[in-house]
Write a protein that binds this DNA or RNA. Sequence first.
DNA 1: TCTGGGGTCCTAGGACCC
DNA 2: TCTGGGGTCCTAGGACCC
Length: 431
Amino acid sequence: MTAIARQKFALVDVNAMYVSCDRAFDPRLRDRPVVTLSNNDGCVVARSNEAKALGVGMGVPWFQLRDLARQHGIVALSSNYALYADMSNRLVSVLREYSPRIEVYSIDESFLSLNGLEGQWPSFSAMGQAVRARIWRDVCLPVCYGAGDSKTLAKLANHIAKKRPEFAGVADLTVMPSGEMDQLLSSIDVGEVWGVGRRTATRLQAMGINTVQALRAASPKAIRAQFGVVMERTCDELRGRSCIELEEVAPAKQQIISSRSFGYTVQTLREIEEAISMFLARASEKLRAQGSRCGAVQVFVMTDRFAERDPQYCNAFTVPMPEPSDDLRMLARAALWGLKRIFRTGYRYKKAGVVLMDISGRNMQQATLFDSGVRRARSAEVMAALDGLNSRYGRDTVRLGSAAGSGRWTARFDRKTPNYTTDWGDLPIAR
DNA sequence: TCTGGGGTCCTAGGACCC
DNA sequence: TCTGGGGTCCTAGGACCC
């Protein structure tokens, strides 16, 4: 066993990314409660601090906020993803000037390796302040900066930088005296840890582990036994032992999804065909960008699950390609053929999409059929319907994934199913 | 009236083989 | 027919992230 050199990371994260991007171009939006809405102006996907202070939750449907918005003058903006992507690229190019090794983790977060940079700065806090000032000046985005001995600690530091005013947007855990660190981490809920979701947080709390500090102090063996290697790694990371590497090059995608809810329900095959063609253009562009080919194209449609009085229908069909392809026309032909197999007249369709599966170079064992994104429980009704389908079309043609347990319902498709078909036409939409 | 769109990883246990 | 061990592959399900 060789000694591992101490690693250091920073996480730079944009505050309320989408709102901040829009503010960069319209300073009148500063200091006002602002939210950014999802596609079709459906849900809140970003909130300014002022909006958060008014109690606006993440993912809340906009129509439920109308009154609150009127009362407090909340400004709602449609999302503009092209703008956000452009701003994100500018931000990353600035960050590259500060560290030679960067992982672009998401559109608004990047990890920086701090190894070997100690000599360049009086402290990492000083570096953080410099990064913040520079990004504000050149990209006009407010960021927070957190440094730690692992990516998990850097994430946590960033959380602290964001939530505790006394840190002024920069927190460095790499030099914090251990007593002070213990005290600080004792004041943070265990659920804030990267990798601890709602389910795990509940189970930890039942064991009396309520704070980050308590998780840090827990017995690794017990954690391993109860939660598996992932949580054990998280604990190691919290103790300052870095286990999660910086990923400078993003791995190729194993599946590529393109889907949208329609602004209005549509009823004709023609309309859905047009949408599917657009989805495929987007998806195949991503496929080619990563130099892959795909072996099967899946197409799915569904009605409006909230229109409880309308007849409900959702279905998917997966078409294997004669040979793996990245050609838009070939893929589109397959998808449109599949669409004809599942399209039924007499329904008002609300959502459709495509999934590129069986992508070359990645041996995917499972493909998510689609994720409805719904918070709902697995009902007895759904289970009964599933049983019916599975007995009719073959054992386990369709199954519901775990997400059901966590309140999200994911249907999964087994590609070993004959003809790659999953016909769950009778599956009712659960609540 | 109006309710987002993407992704990944781990593990237990059964099937199957020698 | 029974007993025994070692190993790999696959899949169903659970969880997490932005």
